[in-house]
C-alpha cells in the first residue's frame, strides 16, 4: 500500500513538472497556429510594413515594433544610470541605518503592479510632459519615462545584490592601497560583479519590452512611425491591449496573434541571454 502511494506521488510530481514544459510548448504552438493566416497573407512583410489599417485588412507591425524598441531604449537610457547610482548608494554610500529601510522600500516598490505606474503616469506625468515638451502629453517620451520609473526599483535592487557579492576583503585590499570609494567601485566592485550587473540590465530590458500596463495608459496606440518623441505612438503590447477585443475579422485576429508570438519570441530570447549567459556565469564565479 505505502509502496503504491510512494509511486503515485512520485509520478504525480513528475507529471506536473513535465506538464509545465508541455504548457510552454503548447503556448508557442497555439500562438503559431493562430498566426498562420497572417503569416500566409503577409509573410516577412508583416515585420517591415508600416501600415496598420484594420479597415483595409492591411496589417504591418513595424510601427508597433518601432514603438517597443524606442520606448524600451528610452527607458533603459534613463533607468540604467539612475539604477547604478541608487545601487552604489545602497551598497557603498548609505549609512548602515539608511541601507536597510531604503533598500526594503525599493524592493517593495518593485512589487507594486505596473498598472499603478501607468495610472500615475496618466494623471501626473502626462500633464508635465505636455507642459514641458508640448504636444498632448500622451507620447513615446512619456511611455519611455514611465517605463523607466517602473523598472528602476527592480534594476536597482538586482544591481545592488550583484554589487554586494563582492567580498569585503577584496574591497578592503583596494582601500589598503589608498583607493577612494570610487576607485574601489570602478576597479574592483564593477569588474567583479560585471556579469551580474549586465545580466540584471538585460533582464530588465526583457521585462520592459513586454510590459503592457505601464505604457498602455500613456502611449496613445497610434500606428505611425514618428521621430518626434512627443507624438503618440504604439508598441506591441499596447496594440494587443487595445485591439484584441476589437478584432472583427480573422485576419485582424491572426495579425494580433502574430504580434503576440513575435513578442514572446523576442522576450524569450532576451531573458534567456540574461539568465543563461550572464547570470549563470555570475553564479559559477
Amino acid at each position: 500500500m505505502s509502496i503504491l502511494i510512494d509511486k503515485l506521488f512520485s509520478y504525480a510530481t513528475k507529471f506536473v513538472a513535465i506538464a509545465v514544459l508541455l504548457l510552454v510548448a503548447w503556448i508557442f504552438t497555439i500562438l503559431f497556429q493562430n498566426s498562420i493566416d497572417s503569416i500566409e497573407a503577409f509573410g516577412f512583410d508583416f515585420l517591415t510594413e508600416t501600415k496598420w489599417a484594420p479597415n483595409l485588412e492591411k496589417f504591418g507591425a513595424l510601427p508597433a515594433i518601432y514603438g517597443s524598441v524606442v520606448s524600451t531604449f528610452l527607458a533603459m537610457v534613463l533607468a540604467v544610470p539612475l539604477a547604478i547610482g541608487v545601487a552604489i548608494f545602497l551598497s557603498e554610500l548609505a549609512p548602515a541605518k539608511l541601507k536597510s529601510p531604503v533598500g526594503v522600500s525599493i524592493e517593495l516598490l518593485a512589487a507594486i503592479p505596473s498598472v499603478i505606474y501607468g495610472m500615475w503616469g496618466l494623471f501626473y506625468f502626462v500633464p508635465i510632459v505636455r507642459d514641458i515638451f508640448g504636444g498632448i502629453g500622451i507620447s513615446m517620451l512619456t511611455a519611455g519615462i514611465v517605463l523607466s520609473i517602473m523598472i528602476l526599483p527592480f534594476m536597482a535592487a538586482v544591481t545592488r545584490d550583484a554589487m554586494n557579492t563582492t567580498p569585503d576583503i577584496l574591497k578592503e585590499s583596494a582601500y589598503a592601497l589608498g583607493g577612494t570609494k570610487w576607485d574601489v567601485i570602478k576597479d574592483i566592485i564593477i569588474p567583479y560583479a560585471k556579469a551580474g550587473i549586465i545580466g540584471s540590465f538585460i533582464l530588465a530590458l526583457g521585462r520592459a519590452i513586454g510590459e503592457t500596463m505601464a505604457v498602455t495608459f500613456v502611449m496613445g496606440n497610434v500606428h505611425k512611425i514618428s521621430f518626434d518623441l512627443t507624438e503618440p505612438a504604439t508598441s506591441i503590447p499596447v496594440t494587443l491591449a487595445n485591439e484584441f477585443t476589437e478584432a472583427d475579422t480573422s485576419l485582424y485576429y491572426s495579425s494580433l496573434f502574430e504580434l503576440s508570438l513575435f513578442l514572446l519570441v523576442i522576450s524569450f530570447t532576451i531573458i534567456s541571454i540574461a539568465k543563461f549567459y550572464f547570470l549563470r556565469r555570475q553564479r559559477a564565479a
Binding site: 576583503i169 585590499s173 576597479d187 574592483i188 569588474p191 567583479y192
Partner: peptide, 10 residues
C-alpha cells in the same frame, strides 16, 4: 596590508 585570504583583483 595583507589579508587572511589572497585578494587578487579581477
Amino acid at each position: 596590508m595583507i589579508f587572511q585570504k589572497p585578494t587578487a583583483f579581477p
